[in-house]
């Protein structure tokens, strides 16, 4: 008993501690998340109140003396408490929720960013002219990036979501609800952050082996910083004649990855032109360091089972290190 109590207290504390941080709907930092959170608290409070009322009534019905009321009173209780009250409450909640929807989805006044969920990472493109739905696939072009999305604070950014393979779902709990990324359809999601910060996102629709490791980061920046960031991402890579670059090209990495400013122009995996400017590699899996880059290149499937990049463990360690060092310089 003692131990059971202790462990249940412990799990409550563990649960509560997940109520703050970069990936929780309880720590709302965006307009939609705040609205949904308000809805949640109202629903929860109401549900608890109604639950207490019903339990109290059933206690009274079994332990008290309900027989002293007339049948008419009972009938009245059923009609008002069992029919009218729930109907009115549900109608009010429905009204509230329905009213919220078009408001949250009204046109954006910030940048349009195309995001494709791909097994098992996120392809990002800034500055696309988006026309949600008019096309069945995401608009092409724009400034390519991956797994880290910058958006300006207090602006309504339009995220256009698509997918070339299976259904994924884009979810940044602190900012907004989820939205599916569906092949053959473009969905739009408005992100309107109200606080600066870095937030975690995740794929919220099972999409394959590495689904649980398909994360992302959202960086909420000031408008100037955002503009500066996108301008920097649009630049080609700062390449030199390093051994890393030639090894990268020799080993065929360029068949899948682009590094703008070099002959590497693959389109299968993430754009690596400014890979070192990101905070993480492999879709939010590991912090961006040269050691992690080397570990990932040598055995991606070891860190991320099911990943769609072949392992390059056959290469000599020294070569992998040189490649990683070079990639680590691509800010």
């Amino acid at each position: 008993m003692r131990r059971g109590q202790a462990s249940s207290i412990f799990s409550v504390i563990a649960l509560l501690s997940s109520c703050t941080g970069p990936q929780t709907a309880f720590d709302a930092a965006g307009v939609e998340a705040q609205r949904v959170l308000a809805l949640f608290w109202v629903l929860l409070t109401g549900a608890v109140a109604i639950w207490l009322l019903v339990i109290g009534l059933s206690y009274y019905a079994t332990k008290g003396d309900p027989a002293k009321h007339s049948e008419k009173t009972g009938l009245r209780l059923i009609i008002w408490g069992g029919c009218v009250f729930p109907t009115v409450v549900l109608a009010a909640l429905l009204f509230w929720g329905l009213k919220m929807m078009p408001e949250l989805r009204r046109p954006a006044d910030g940048p349009t960013i195309a995001v494709a969920g791909e097994r098992f990472w996120w392809r990002v493109a800034y500055d696309v002219d988006g026309d949600p739905g008019a096309v069945r696939n995401l608009p092409q072009g724009g400034v390519p990036s991956a797994n880290e999305i910058w958006i300006p604070v207090n602006k309504r950014s339009e995220i256009l979501l698509g997918s070339p393979d299976v259904i994924h779902s884009f979810w940044v709990p602190s900012l907004a609800g989820k939205m599916d990324a569906i092949p053959g359809r473009v969905n739009r999601l408005i992100l309107e952050p109200t606080e600066l910060g870095i937030f975690n996102g995740a794929c919220a629709e099972f999409c394959g082996t590495a689904h649980a490791q398909m994360g992302l980061r959202v960086v909420v920046a000031s408008e100037e910083d955002f503009a500066r960031y996108v301008r920097a991402q649009a630049e080609p890579a700062a390449v030199d004649e390093s051994v890393g670059l030639s090894l990268f090209l020799q080993n065929g990495c360029g068949g899948c990855h682009s590094v703008r400013g070099t002959p590497a122009d693959g389109d299968v995996g993430p754009d690596l032109t400014h890979v070192a400017s990101r905070r993480t590699i492999a879709a939010g899996l590991l912090p961006m360091t040269e050691e992690n880059l080397a570990a990932f290149i040598a055995a991606p499937d070891h860190l991320k089972p099911g990943v769609e990049m072949p392992a390059f463990g056959v290469l000599p360690d020294a070569e992998i290190e040189q490649i990683s060092e070079w990639l680590g310089s691509l800010e």
Binding site: L90, A91, L94, F95, L98, K99, M101, P102, R105, R106
Partner: peptide
């Protein structure tokens, strides 16, 4: 039936 009709009263487009 009234509940089912509430969306068209409150939402005027395909959002």
């Amino acid at each position: 039936v009234i509940f089912e009709t509430m969306p068209v009263l409150l939402i005027g487009d395909c959002r």
